[in-house]
Structures are given as C-alpha cells and as structure tokens.
Nucleic acid binder design. Sequence first.
DNA 1: GAATATGATGTAATGGATTACATTACCTTA
DNA 2: TAAGGTAATGTAATCCATTACATCATATTC
Lengths: 330, 330
Amino acid sequence: MNIQDVAREAGVSVATVSRVINHNEKVSTNTKNKVLKAIDKLQYTPNLLGRNLRKKRTYKVLVLVPTLSNEFYSEIVRGVEDVANEENYYVMVCSTHSNKEKEKAYLNMFYNHLIDGIIFTAPEMSGDAMIDIANNYPVIQCSEYIKNTDVSWVSIDNHQASIDAIQYLIDIGHREIAIIGSENGFVSSIKRKQGYLDTLKQNNIQINNDYIIQSDYEFQDGIDGCKKLLNLSKPPTAIFCGSDAIAVGVIRQLTKQGIVVGKDISVIGFDDTHLAAYYNPPITTVSQPRYDMGKVAMELLLRKINNINCKNEYITLDHKLTIRESTLAK
Amino acid sequence: MNIQDVAREAGVSVATVSRVINHNEKVSTNTKNKVLKAIDKLQYTPNLLGRNLRKKRTYKVLVLVPTLSNEFYSEIVRGVEDVANEENYYVMVCSTHSNKEKEKAYLNMFYNHLIDGIIFTAPEMSGDAMIDIANNYPVIQCSEYIKNTDVSWVSIDNHQASIDAIQYLIDIGHREIAIIGSENGFVSSIKRKQGYLDTLKQNNIQINNDYIIQSDYEFQDGIDGCKKLLNLSKPPTAIFCGSDAIAVGVIRQLTKQGIVVGKDISVIGFDDTHLAAYYNPPITTVSQPRYDMGKVAMELLLRKINNINCKNEYITLDHKLTIRESTLAK
DNA sequence: GAATATGATGTAATGGATTACATTACCTTA
DNA sequence: TAAGGTAATGTAATCCATTACATCATATTC
C-alpha cells in the first residue's frame, strides 16, 4: 500500500497526496479532505525509505558512546533525544566498546547514507581522521574530544574542575593527595592531571610521582590503583578519581582493608552518577551537566546538518563540586 | 556518485556492477576486476536507501529498553549486537523511559519501513496490542514479557529464581523475610512474589503482609521500602530485592541507620550487575544470563524476519544465585 | 552442422516518495 | 474582451540500487 493507492482512492494525483502529507503547498480544502479521508480509510503511512531517498535526508543521527551501561552517557543521550524529537529526528545510540574498529564501522553509515550526523562522546580515532570526517559530514564531539582538532565540541572545563576538587581537599587539610585515572587517552584525563599538578604547585606541595596513577575509568582500575597506593611506604590521605566508577573501586578496596573512607581517608569521584549518590558511603564528586551537554551537542549538530559550512563552536558548560560523606576534614 | 558512475567508469552496465557488489550471480573474472577497480578508484559505497527501498528490507532492528543507564539492558544489547553484526544487521537501541506513548511512537518505525524487527525488553503496551503487532511484524520479548500473550519470549524462570533465593535465606537461618519490588507490572515481579509465597509456605512460615512491599526497581524504591520495613514493630532479618538497584538503596538506608548488612541483616539483590559486585558490602544476587538472552532473542528475531509465519517460541535460560557478603548465616 | 544448453551481460521495470515543470481554470485589470 | 496573473492540480523525472527478462556468444550434444 503506497501513495499511488491513496491517490487512486482519493481520485487525485500522487503529487497532490504528497502535498497534503507534507502540508507545505496550497491544496484546496475540498481536495485535502478527500485525501485525508483516503489516508484514513487505507490506514496509509508513508514509506520513509522512499522519502529519504528522494530527499537525501534520513532524519536520523547517531550517538556513539563507549559503553551503554554508564549513566553518564545515558543522560547525554536523553538531552540529545529531547532536542532531536523536537525536530522529528530519530536518535540511534550505538556502543563502540572503546574499539577503534567498531567506531570506524559506524562511519560507514555516513557513506551508506543511513544517517545525517554523528555525536561522538569519546572518539577513538586520530585527530586527522576526525578532521577528515568533519570536513565531509556533520559531526560534533560531546564530553570527550580530540585535542588540537578544530571540530566542534561541548564539554566542561576539566582543568578547572580538577583544580576545584584538589583545592577543596587541600582546604580541608590534605597534603598527601593521589590521582587515579590520568592520561588514559581522553583529553579530560590530561586536563585533570594538569589541574592536579597546578593546584599542588600553587599550594607549595611537593609532587610525588607515586601518587599519580595512570588508568582507565572503570571499577577495576580503582581497585588496582588503590592497592598500589596502599603499598607505598607513605600512602596518601586523599584520592582524586577520574570517574565515579574508579572511586567505587577505590572505596571498595579501602573498606576491604579496614580503612574507613571519610575518616581515615578522603575520596573524590567524577561525574556525579547515581553510583556516587547511593554508594556506601555517598561519594563526593564533580557534577557534570550531562543532560545539557547532550542538548547543546544536538543543537550544534542540527545547525551543521542544515548548513554544512557553518563554523565550528567550542562550548564549555559549568561543573560543580558535590560534597558528600567520602571526604571529611582531617 | 552512484552505481551509474561506477558502471560508466568500468564500461559495463549497472546490473553487472550490482552483481559484483552482491557477489551472488556469475560474473567473469575479467569484468569483475574492472568493476572492482572502478569501485576502488571512485571510492564508491552503495546508497543503502536505494537498496533497502528496492529490497524492502532495512537490515535494522530496534531494541527497546526502559532505560539506557542500566547495565542489565546493556548486556542484553551486547548479545543482540553480536548476533546482528554477524548477519549484517544494524542495532538501534532506544529508550522508552518506561513510557507507553514513547513506546508507541517507536512502533511507527514499522509502519514507516524503517526497521525490520523489534526486541522488547520491558514492553509497556497491553497484551492485545502486543498480539496485534506480533501478527503483523517480527517482534520478540526479551527478559520481561506480557503474560498470557502468545508472543515469543526469552527469559529466566523467575518463579524458580525466587524460590532459590528465599530457600537459601531460610537455609542460613532466616524466618522473617521481606520482599521489595513485587507487582510493579512486570511479569518478573509477579512470578518472584509467587516464588516467595510458595517457599515460605513450603517451609511452614507464616506470611506477613507487612513484609511484602510493592515497588519499582529503582534505588529510591529500596530506600523507601527499607524505611517502611524498619518502622515495623518486628522488622525482618532478611530482605529479598527485585533488583540490584533496590538492594543498593536498602543497604544504603540500613547502613545510614547503623544496621550492619551481612551481620545484623541479610540482603539479596537481583540481576548481578557490577553494582552488586562492587558495592560495599558486595551483594548476594541472582545472576541472569543477560548476554545470552540477548543473543537468543536476536536469533529468534532473525528467524521471524526471514519467515514471518514461523511459530512462537518460549525460551527459558538458566539463572544462578551468586553469594557474596550481604547475606550471612544468622 | 543443427539444435540446444549455458554463461555473461545488458535493458528496462521496479520499489515509493518528492518536486520541477506543465497545464488548466478562473479571476483581474486595462 | 484580450492579456496576464494566480491558484489548484497533474505529468513525468528523479533519487539509487536490484532484478526479471532479453540478448548474444560460446559450448555441448546428437
């Protein structure tokens, strides 16, 4: 059942039916009613494959996330969806599993005309590859982005966020402060490490390289990192973690070894997921405006889709330190 | 740049190019090479909108989840993806936010020829609506399903899983056992409640309606439910929760009130997400074979897609009780 | 060597919608 | 009333790939 059938039923041409469906051009009330009646009678719904082929638009965008099971990304997606639905766009969420090859495979959707744009939340490709894609297709980076690459992004000021967290730890009396989750390939981790270093220097605290643990952002990284720190002759009194998951791993390990978090030691997470709020003890963390980041990213993407030559934008949204029970004055 | 251009470049007809791309029919080696060379030179990738329109297939399936931020669903999706990719299908994950209207909106993708099938992980619609959809389009239910509805599903035996959990609690010495997360609309909750009731009866334990807390599967439900239970004149000594999130809420609340989980009281969760493994204390929980559920669901769906009249199947996979520190002998 | 089968390739219809352009009917205006 | 404008609608091209059917050349069989 197609537009022809509707045209026949209504006794008009397909062009007229199309005009009614897309309610853009003038159609007399009488004809319009005939068409609407036919559509209703036949329970017609347009085949969007036909429409999309002709319009060279798919009204679909892809959001690439490293993993679906992290609330951090799902909130970004919610923001994207809310803007997208407003404009009749479908949102496809796909996971790269932090795998370069998988990410690359999804780029085929551009070449195959299956999507109109992509929002990357944690791009794996090289800067050159990103620039190349961005030159040919509408893309936006959201949260993580590739450094020194002139492709639109939406994020927070990770450097300042780190400064805020470390300064807070110093203010409540800590001087032996460790950081877990630095230099894992994400810009965020590099900027946070820099903020950590800058704040210690600012406060005349000697930098101890044993306190700087390079790792990913997962639970197990927290456990492993924590073990390393506890094996030091002089373990830190505070640990700043690159994600809430790391913080959870850290606290789990500390508790296992009989160390009371929020009393013997302070721990700070990052992202403010439910995990942080409901953990035992609740975790002090840096809140990111994830929903808004998603919204803004989709707005930028829509602009790019509608005019591919529009200029790149770099947008920084506000973060905030949310203090809970995992940190306490020494 | 399209198939015409390739045909021109290679000096053959579009039919031949199509044959080479789809490598099904016989093409001479010589011609094939000419075409492949042209494809390579022009960097041609087929426009799948054209192909899909002609083939009346989209090679896309939708997985509808209530929320993206639950690892339970993301593991199912991983199983679906692994099977789907094998067969060159794209997987779209979309969240209904447990909203009937949103779910309904996604059904339009069938009418609009944008997808070939749907896997529901927590259907919101009525049984009649589900039957109607299933009669016209390929759909599978995975994990949650609508009761008394003859539409294929993949799940675990929730009744038996509940029996296993409760019997374990009784075996380690508990008799005052509460359940949080019953009758929230999901079949799973109803079956688990029944398993709970049956096991108590089986062990000659009087049923106390105050111990049965109806709720959703979220963190806050655990907190609220726990508060109710603690207000009773005789609070339970063990709590069986419908999800790990509930268990987390419960443990958080117990800890807040100074009750030591695993010593003063036992708590069991459901699903075996990372949450359970990494929580403080680690949570005893019922493991579901989420990844396999996803795989099987996609296999069933592919069968339906390839032959719409194939019969419905109801597949039960094995669960298992994973014992951790949140439960201890009384 | 004629008849037939087979392999390789081309031509044109097809899927379903949008839309440039054409046509018709009617209305204004000088 | 002729010329020109406009509103409403239709015709046919178009988007891109697949595929039924047609054609031709070569191989096989009797």
